[in-house]
Design a protein around this nucleic acid. Structure first.
Lengths: 244, 244
DNA sequence: AATACACTAACGAAGCGTAATTGTGT
DNA sequence: AACACAATTACGCTTCGTTAGTGTAT
């Protein structure tokens, strides 16, 4: 009546903690039942139950069993410090997860736009996305991902189809030596800017990153990019200058 | 000259992958070097190096070695499906991490406001925060956390000091049977509303959740709350009705 | 003989799940 | 004898890091 000590099975049923876990906590000395009795059965007293609740509460916060032991047994170890330390780690994991999700989303979107995906294509796409990370801040990447969702797959596919044509036209005019201020080139430049703005959303930071990326990547002979992209970009730049 | 097969150490140095890892990949059959030679040394051919790069790329996306093996070897296993599956898991982990961070932040903030933190206080605070989770949606919790940051610790401390006083005054008037429309009670009600609005930021959903929480928690005899809170709330409610 | 590098074998880690085997009481 | 519950022991999971002991070539 005064001390309804519980056996493992009983305690497990009442708390939802598995018997194995209780055994384990006993094994590592985190929660040792008050006494043994009747065939060496573990008998948990009220204080043990309270301690178990403390342990589970702290576990829900993601503390390791070692950390929990420290908080519960070391009086020098203030909960605030432990929690703050743990919070810092949680923040780091959070940031890492976010970055991972962003990359996976970009990858899934890119793969979704392709009909057949060979391993090679997959690797190239991954590389492309990984390279992107170097040219944009996390915030910018989030913004780009957001715009990608808003614009939609079809429109992206359209633009991806239009780009090579546009580039080809620019190449032709450039090799012909057409004056950048001519109406033909002006029209191409306007179209070019429009497509770029559709991607950047007018954000100048993103636009800058995009320029850097094209310059760098085509310089380091990225197989996706026309190595003469910087030339085209300069040509279009002149055209835009002239229109002002 | 034609095939500069690499030994483990060499490959490790060039790729940054540890020798142990290369041994392991060989052991599980994920990356078996093309041949062995000269004292059973592993000799990696160009194709092996390419495969290693594929493996590391996929690892960066958080894929397990098993998943990687599947993607690289099972032609039925389309990359898109694998990535999407993985993305879903990543999203789940992300949500979990976010929730955890929110709770840890709330906890750290609460602990920061207390001078001495006993284990009991810690547990009660955790419980309080855990209970909160039931009355607010994740978005609402994020909003509350955000407002907490904006308002600042000091102001929160002030409000926490003022509340009991205000409640005591309300209790006195209520027991005196003062008419809710009297100027005394009206003043108390205005103050009450102001403090509540400071917490809710005027968000009606949060206000509703707060009301529910107080009703429920005081009904289930939460040790932090005056069990007569519902009565006070009703009294103040009448006063506010009368002022309209 | 010493140095550098490679090889294999095996423990450890975090937190239990999942047997397998053996009591013990009813 | 069967059934319920408890105890102990120990492998498994995942991805390597880290010794430890042993060649082998220079």
């Amino acid at each position: 009546m005064h001390r309804p000590d519980l056996k493992v099975g009983e305690l497990a049923r009442r708390t939802g903690i598995s018997v194995r876990t209780l055994h384990y906590y006993d094994e590592i000395g985190l929660l040792t039942p008050a006494r043994r009795g009747d065939g060496n059965h573990r008998l948990y007293a009220v204080a043990d139950i309270a301690r178990l609740q403390q342990i589970t509460s702290l576990r829900q916060l993601g503390l390791s069993l070692e950390e929990i032991r420290a908080v519960l047994e070391d009086p020098d170890c203030t909960p605030l410090r432990v929690v703050e330390l743990h919070l810092a780690q949680a923040h780091q994991r959070l940031a890492a997860e976010r970055a991972l999700c962003d990359r996976l989303e970009a990858l899934a979107a890119a793969l979704g736009r392709m009909e057949e995906v060979s391993i090679d294509m997959l690797m190239q796409t991954i590389e492309g996305i990984t390279n992107m990370d170097q040219y944009f801040t996390p915030e910018q990447r989030a913004e780009i991902a957001e715009r990608g969702r808003q614009i939609g797959q079809e429109r992206i596919r359209e633009v991806e189809a239009e780009w090579p044509q546009l580039i080809e036209q620019v190449r032709v005019e450039m090799e012909r030596g057409t004056d950048p201020s001519s109406e033909t080139v002006q029209a191409l430049a306007r179209r070019w800017s429009a497509l770029v703005r559709e991607f950047t959303g007018g954000n100048p930071g993103i636009e800058q990153g995009l320029r850097d990326m094209y310059r760098q990547e085509s310089a380091s002979s990225n197989p996706h990019l026309d190595p003469r992209m910087p030339e085209y970009m300069a040509y279009i730049g002149k055209a835009l200058q002239a229109s002002k």
